[in-house]
Design a protein around this nucleic acid. Structure first.
Length: 179
DNA sequence: ACGATGATGAAC
DNA sequence: TTCATCATCGTA
């Protein structure tokens, strides 16, 4: 049997698609960070989609501001912001340039929760606006894992009750654990 | 159930 | 310049 498929760094074209498509397909991919101790990371297990100015839960709902500028830019760049004064949230920009959308990475490997994984991987504002490449030190790889649609659970997003009807949309994707 | 903790955007 | 709000988490 042939050697298992080699790792492939996701190219920007992967992210230049509708945010719901990208969010779903990010499950099973590997988030990797270059640290002083070497390359660390794990499989992406939970994500949320934030979709344009019409999405009341999306920061870009307020329009183009200094904070949301990265989301209006080209796909494949990191959008990192501080939440509740303590936790860094990691997002990857998707879709066409000028259309503000991004995927929030909420679960990686054994880290459950968006603030825990950024703390573990030392991800902070220095990566805001950077491109997801090996050179930038934070990237995503396809290691050949196939995720059947039946292993993906869709639910409303977490912590966005203020978004009214948009809070109910099933924009959260969770990889169900398998034995 | 609640406090830590600071950036953000809007109001004044 | 002040204010309410906030895509969270650990402790109680």
């Amino acid at each position: 049997m042939a050697h298992p498929q080699t790792s492939c760094v996701l190219p920007s074209a992967f992210f230049e698609r509708p945010v719901l498509t990208v969010a779903q397909e990010l499950l099973g991919k590997h988030l990797l960070k270059q640290t002083l101790e070497g390359i660390r990371g794990g499989m992406i297990t939970e994500v949320e989609a934030y979709d344009g100015v019409q999405d009341k839960a999306c920061h870009a709902h307020k329009g183009l501001t200094p904070r949301t500028r990265v989301m209006f830019g080209p796909a494949g760049h990191w959008y990192v912001y501080l939440c509740y004064g303590m936790y860094w949230m990691l997002n990857i920009v998707t879709g066409e340039e000028g259309y503000p959308a991004a995927v929030l990475i909420r679960g990686v490997g054994d880290w459950n929760g968006p603030g825990k994984l950024t703390r573990a991987l030392h991800i902070d504002r220095k990566l805001n606006g950077a491109v997801a490449t090996v050179q930038s030190g934070l990237w995503i790889e396809d290691r050949g894992t196939i995720i059947p649609p039946s292993h993906i659970k869709r639910t409303p997003r977490i912590g966005v009750a203020y978004a009214k009807e948009w809070a109910e949309k099933p924009y959260r994707f969770v990889l169900m654990s398998q034995e």
